[in-house]
Design a protein around this nucleic acid. Sequence first.
DNA 1: AGAAGATAGTTATACCAAGTACCTATCTTT
DNA 2: AAAGATAGGTACTTGGTATAACTATCTTCT
Lengths: 160, 160
Amino acid sequence: MKKAISDPLGQPGPAVVSDDTLRGFIGYRMKRAFNVLQADLTQTLKPFELRMLTYTALTLIVDNPGLRQSQLADAMDVERPNLVIVIDELERRDLIVRDRVPTDRRAYALRVTLAGRQLYEKAFAAMKDHEKRMLEGLDAETCKTVIAALETIQKHHAKG
Amino acid sequence: MKKAISDPLGQPGPAVVSDDTLRGFIGYRMKRAFNVLQADLTQTLKPFELRMLTYTALTLIVDNPGLRQSQLADAMDVERPNLVIVIDELERRDLIVRDRVPTDRRAYALRVTLAGRQLYEKAFAAMKDHEKRMLEGLDAETCKTVIAALETIQKHHAKG
DNA sequence: AGAAGATAGTTATACCAAGTACCTATCTTT
DNA sequence: AAAGATAGGTACTTGGTATAACTATCTTCT
């Protein structure tokens, strides 16, 4: 039930807190929307013991078999050191393997295992449901506009 | 300059990493867009030694003088414990004060100081520039659509 | 009035995300 | 063969978020 902020017994402070100034910033809106999205996403992936980062990595490995860790780090926009623990975790759970690259003994070729692919398929289905939940109340046209705008914002200021 | 991923000497891994599957998720787009936005925002606020959280808190205190910490926590969608260190920091820098509420000795009424307001005004101007940068390339109609969509996503799944 | 329960702020703690500095092993270039 | 670049990794730091539990007050109910 609603908090009785304006309850005269509840006394001090403004009856209702205004965030009008902040709402003038797109970042404020994005943060708040992303927070609720991420909360739902976390719950969505919990049954598979995946987080956003591990799911993202798993997906990119499924779609790009044999890619190297540095390529994955670039694609995910994370620093190489931070990717290591993600890959460690996926490998420890036997969802992926680090194959040595014969022609470059520094590099690993990342590949999904059978178990990894099976988990991925289930998680993907759950993510599709999550996506549907998130976009409830938005028509297709609006979605396209939003997606294009997000891409514009991202690409326009992407680090060179 | 561009990484020569497809350089035949650079050898292994896919020539180009595809993220088509992930791009089917609005969350992926939002995260990436928000990441670049936050990077710019962090730089924007750095001269004032403010972070997104401290700027947000300062703004809400300026706009809602006398509000209590719990109201601020609610408005910011952060847990009360996490707000404490934010308020501590603003108070330590003499940007705000914690006034005791005479009618409820448990509560604090938060108010901006003169120094706080002056810093706020400067930061606000910088934030307006930041906002303009972020929305470069998007017309007003698109902005409205995006903002409405973000609000729909947020409100629809707001924690009751 | 007095006990029971709620609320405001706080402390301590934990986890995850993100970033930097630096190291080793290998590859490339000259 | 030496110098520099690259792949992956270790160690460490910071920041955001979350929960449990504590103290002090306030409210409610009998």
